[in-house]
Design a protein around this nucleic acid. Structure first.
Length: 588
RNA sequence: GGGGGCGUAGCUCAAUUGGUUAGAGUACCGGACUGUCGAUCCGGUGGUUGCGGGUUCGAUUCCCGUCGCCCUCGCCA
């Protein structure tokens, strides 16, 4: 139908007879002459309806409204002097209309794609077809396409094979809550949508496809966040005959390629690495935002000597006293502001309170709590925290885990409030040497930090018997700007070791057989050493696009309550459908 | 499940201590206008203040409940 798109006409095209198709973005009616900005995903072009084209044509153009779909034929002309629009790529030319067809009318849209003010997100989601017309959304959709293609090309060039794995699988109680799909053919039984293709990709390793990759849709029925959707996409990778270094090296190369091609950034390789313990000690979290400092400082040894019961008591109870130094922020936070920070960590992270000191011009630490400290001890705490006049010291006394959570939260919040970093900068790093196990708070014993197939570091294998908590895994997380952008492990391929780990996790032989017997079987038929990683595609695109919600990089996302405002999903189904599935709803 | 924020015209927002007919910009409709590009000018339509209840002489405003959207803790091997 069309000869050109709305984004490509230039002075070179002057004199050509062209046909454009698109949506009416704006129209400006001057009575005699009428301008229409025609828009498609390639750009906008100004179309002029002038009396020279005939009265009928101008009259027809007068009937145009926002978002009508039209076809226009006409001649490309240079714009008269002084009317060139430098804001448009096509702004040097215009199309003098000779023919107009309204391909389709449109209702008055609930909002206009070119509106300056963004409407509420619920309205955007309900009318996603309008929202997706917005240039910003189109830019993101295109960016996502390009990034996924780059990744596919990158892996393809390295000999990876993309294999599709089933969506209808088997529920395994570990990990997140499953989305279940009832079986009609086997009444009373259910498939589970994959939380990740983890087991299948390991099976593929056993089957000899030593370099596997898949753009894999994953499903987890857990509560949503700005960076979490119930269905999301992983760039899923698995390799055989490799170690953690090989995986990290390949992903290093991928990240550098993406940074170069998408952002024009030269990234120095290898990407820096930090151990899990170091991350927890310095930042209180296993995915720290390394774009700024304000590290956590431990003053437990000094706190133990204080009169101050809050401090001494915490240390005597086996806890810690740690804090952060918000440089120069003493004046930024009034007493009320500090009360807010206190409420924030008490309500959100279970901290008992927040102790603060403002550093005065003479270097002394001032605070309602100061009287509980010997001056020399206070000075020592100040030195430890590198206190300078104008600084605000914030300290939390609690169990180690609580100080981590509270100070991580404070650091994140203050980092943003005090603008301690440029949001446009990108920081890539690896967190490595994760613990194999975390204490199971509900049932006692241990739970897997990653999943039950994660291999311990070879040198830590004997710790499985003596000190499981000290045992480190061959696990690695890719962290970008404080987000976990990916994570992976080397898997256990040895039956004996697998049994040992199952034992620690409280998975007995019968249970293991029932849940993933097929994997255990496969591992006995010649499983190569293998491992892999999965990258969160939505988060990667979000970070590269400089956005802070993955909903903005997903064409049709769900709301926080996991509904689709456009389709109305999830919805009720017919009784007949339920009967066929053998499902009876309570109260029916 | 817990904490917090928001909900007023199609859209983005305002409305004094609880007080007269709930306003503005934009969109929309009508009119004028031959070079605009956020066109301009004139006129107009448009409201169950999310919904339900309560307090009050009087509620957009205060209280309770409920629904929706967002942020967050728990949760997310």
């Amino acid at each position: 139908m069309r000869t050109h798109t709305c984004g490509e006409l230039r002075l070179d095209n002057v004199g050509q007879e062209v046909t454009l198709c698109g949506w009416v973005d704006m129209y400006r009616d001057f009575g005699g002459v009428l301008f229409v900005d025609l828009r498609d995903r390639y750009g906008k072009t100004q179309v002029v309806f002038a009396p020279e084209g005939g009265k009928e044509l101008v009259d027809a153009a007068c009937a145009l409204r926002s978002e009508f779909v039209v076809l226009v034929r006409g001649k490309v002309a240079p714009r008269p002097e002084g009317t060139v629009n430098p804001k448009l790529d096509t702004g040097a030319v215009e199309v003098r209309a000779e023919h107009l067809e309204i391909l389709n009318k449109a209702l008055t849209p609930p909002f206009q794609p070119s509106a300056k003010e963004l409407p509420g997100e619920d309205l955007r989601l309900k009318h996603r077809y309008i929202d997706l017309r917005r240039p910003e959304m189109q830019r993101t959709v295109l960016l996502r396409h390009r990034m996924v293609k780059m990744m596919r090309d990158y892996f393809d060039a390295l000999g990876f094979v993309e294999v599709e794995t089933p969506m209808l699988g088997r529920s395994t109680p570990e990990g997140a809550r499953d989305y279940l799909v009832p079986s009609r053919v086997q009444p009373g039984t259910f498939y589970a949508l994959p939380q990740s293709p983890q087991l299948y990709k390991q099976i593929l390793m056993v089957a000899g496809y030593d370099r596997y990759v898949q753009v894999a849709r994953c499903f987890r029925d857990e509560d949503l966040r700005a960076d979490r959707q119930p269905e999301f996409t992983q760039m899923d990778v698995e390799m055989s005959f490799i170690n953690a270094e090989d995986i990290i090296g390949i992903i290093d190369g991928l990240v550098a390629r993406l940074a170069k091609d998408v952002l024009g950034l030269e990234i120095k390789l290898p990407l820096p690495r930090m151990s899990y313990d170091e991350a927890m000690n310095r930042f209180g979290h296993d995915a720290p935002d390394l774009r700024f400092g304000m590290e956590l400082i431990d003053v437990s040894d000094l706190a133990a000597k204080a009169e101050f019961k809050v401090f001494r008591g915490a240390v005597e109870a086996g806890g810690r006293v740690r804090g952060i130094n918000a440089k120069g922020a003493a004046d930024r936070y009034s007493r009320k502001g500090i009360d807010e920070l206190t409420a924030y960590i008490v309500e959100n992270f279970g901290a008992k309170g927040l102790v603060f000191f403002k550093v005065e011009s003479d270097g002394k630490l001032a605070s309602p709590s100061a009287k509980n400290f010997a001056p020399e001890l206070l000075a020592e705490i100040g030195r430890r925290m590198e206190a300078a006049p104008g600084d605000l010291l914030l300290l939390v006394a609690d169990k180690f885990e609580t100080t981590c959570k509270a100070l991580y939260g404070l650091r994140k919040r203050l980092g943003a409030e005090l603008k301690l970093y440029d949001p446009a900068t990108m920081n890539f790093s690896w967190i490595v040497e994760f613990p194999m196990f975390a204490p199971d708070t509900e049932e006692g014993g241990w739970t897997a930090m990653h999943h039950p197939f994660t291999a311990p570091r070879p040198q830590d294998r004997k710790l499985l018997e003596t000190d499981p908590q000290a045992c480190r895994a061959q696990a690695y997380d890719l962290v970008i700007n404080g987000y976990e952008a990916g994570g992976g492990t080397i898997r256990i391929h040895d039956q004996e070791l697998q049994q040992q780990v199952f034992g620690l996790l409280g998975i007995d032989a019968a249970k293991a057989r029932e849940r993933f017997g097929f994997l255990l079987d496969a591992l006995q038929y010649g499983a190569p050493p293998h491992g892999g990683i999965a990258l969160g595609v939505d988060r990667l695109v979000m970070l590269f696009a400089g956005l802070d919600s993955i909903r903005d990089v997903i064409a049709f996302p769900k709301t926080q309550r996991a509904t689709d405002l456009m389709t109305g999903a999830p919805g009720q189904v017919d009784d007949k459908q339920l009967r066929e599935l053998g499902i009876k709803l309570p109260g029916k």
